[in-house]
Write a protein that binds this DNA or RNA. Structure first.
Lengths: 137, 137
DNA sequence: TATAATATATTGTAAATCAATGTATTATAT
DNA sequence: ATATAATACATTGATTTACAATATATTATA
């Protein structure tokens, strides 16, 4: 039970790592939902999505985005069309299908319900039920 | 371009699978945050956590929970103590460390910021910026 | 004594993100 | 005319993680 500076530094590092990990998990969880949300609001190509996500502090890399868009396209939620660019190679502009819009509606409801659930879990005032054995330290 | 009943059924199935997958991702993203939130509100043992999560419609399995608790304990956010039970084997009651409480405070802020960001992404009314090339079909 | 219920814990599999890299096209500088 | 830079789509390998199934141990009950 002798804490050296090294012990404290290690402890701090581990906690910081876990915080960053948990933050990362949170953001990952809503990636697909956010991307559908962005596309639902208008035709965009991948770099648009990366930029909009970055503005929302929800960074996504191309290695994540391209397979995801392909998956959503194969699932029937998205479609794309090629558009020539004046400053580089042609772009793949993505739009939502009718099925995609329907799916997004469901996911929007899921998101709202989850936020409500998490907020209730998080706020101690609503903790009416008392199933735990309260033991004072 | 001839849609049979089979085609439609496959299409529906794929969309349903993606919806469920996205819902699952959302829930996964907040698992660790919710578990910290539950423990922060009082001493609990794993089955308590499973039950509280189930009530919030955020199901978690034991195979997920035990490694997660071990990770949080090793990171210094949690501690536990054994408590004898009158109806089975002894239970591991988990409590938060001071470091854990500090970490939770940061994560709570992250959660709130993320909800704000996602809600803004989701609401089309705030879509003031117009970087996309609007092309009518 | 055997079975059921409770509780902690591990293992193997599948899915997803990330970092790094690859390929191709267009504009710009030399 | 050629080389470089910028833009854009795309893939690969490694790591992480949640899940399903299963294992181990303890207590109560039939």
């Amino acid at each position: 039970m002798h804490s050296t500076i090294k012990d404290l530094a290690l402890c701090f590092k581990l906690i910081l790592m876990d915080i960053q990990n948990t933050q990362s998990q949170m953001r990952k969880g809503v990636l697909e939902f956010c991307i559908l949300s962005i596309i639902q609001q208008g035709e965009v190509y991948p770099s648009d999505i990366v930029e909009k996500m970055k503005l929302a502090n929800l960074h996504i890399l191309e290695g994540t985005l391209y397979p995801l868009l392909t998956r959503l396209k194969n699932a029937g939620l998205l479609n794309y069309r090629w558009v020539e660019s004046i400053s580089g190679p042609p772009r793949k502009y993505f739009v939502m299908t009718d099925e995609g819009k329907a799916a997004f509606g469901i996911l929007l409801q899921t998101w709202k319900e989850m936020v409500t659930a998490v907020d209730q879990l998080t706020s101690p005032t609503t903790n009416i039920t008392e199933p735990t054995t309260e033991v004072v330290s």
